[in-house]
Design a binder for these strands. Structure first.
Lengths: 127, 127
DNA sequence: TTGATATATATCGGTTGCAGATATATACGA
DNA sequence: TCGTATATATCTGCAACCGATATATATCAA
């Protein structure tokens, strides 16, 4: 028995759509995003570290998100560099436009897939 | 300038859904399927030979399709083996069940993606 | 008749993208 | 103190796919 069919995997484009959608609700950071994607999808979508961090870096390079380091101080903290850090990602104006494009692209995608599912009834072809 | 955003790519699961959907309308063969996918999707989806033939072979091995060779005879044809051939694919009962599963999985997929797009409004979270 | 294009199936080779593992470091509860 | 959770990041290998290539025939126009 192989694993049962639940949902198709995320393409890179769909992953970007999901992450930009989350960031539209407010800034977040890698670990939280990863957990949120799993929780909101009822574990259907999973974005692991090896997928997430390179993608976030790419979004940053493209100017779709702006980043900000938060120092999570331990009890005592000198001016050292070793404390735990949290990298916040905030949707930029460019990112919002990209999100809108991804949403529209997804709607076209869904529409075409549905036309295949509907089949000949929808195309006028003879059955 | 990179290519404009049109639709996300097809995952293997979505490609299978599209091809099984086409075969539900009646038997077809590789080249015709490739052309049909492009035509019906207004060129948004493209399934080239290197993607299509391995996939069709896989579907055949899984018993989702049944195959049948058609000899396309030239004007003269002895009992030779060199004539052009056409390999027909017909959806099996098992393939029909698989298609139904893929359709349901796609609907779950769409539903989850839409919930991300809808965002906080749909989740009860504070904006 | 010759050449270009379409039909038809199939494989190969390089690139991309990701899953799983590993690495590092801290916080917290049992 | 030991395991789990938080938090970011890279590495290694594998699988999938795009583009090209291969082979062979049919068709149509010049």
């Amino acid at each position: 028995m192989s694993k049962p069919i639940t949902t198709p995997q995320l393409t890179p484009d769909h992953t970007e759509l999901v992450i930009l959608s989350l960031l539209r609700e407010g800034p977040s950071y890698g670990y939280a995003i990863s957990k949120l994607v799993a929780a909101r999808s009822e574990e259907a979508f999973k974005v692991g570290p090896s997928q997430l961090y390179p993608l976030l870096t790419k979004l940053e390079k493209q100017g779709l998100v702006e980043t900000d380091w938060e120092e999570i101080k331990a009890k005592s903290a000198g001016p050292d560099d070793n404390g735990r850090k949290r990298k916040w990602y905030k949707l930029s104006a460019k990112g919002q436009r990209r999100l809108q494009q991804r949403i529209e692209a997804h709607q076209r995608f869904t529409s075409i897939i549905n036309s295949f599912i509907a089949g000949s009834e929808a195309t006028g072809a003879v059955a």
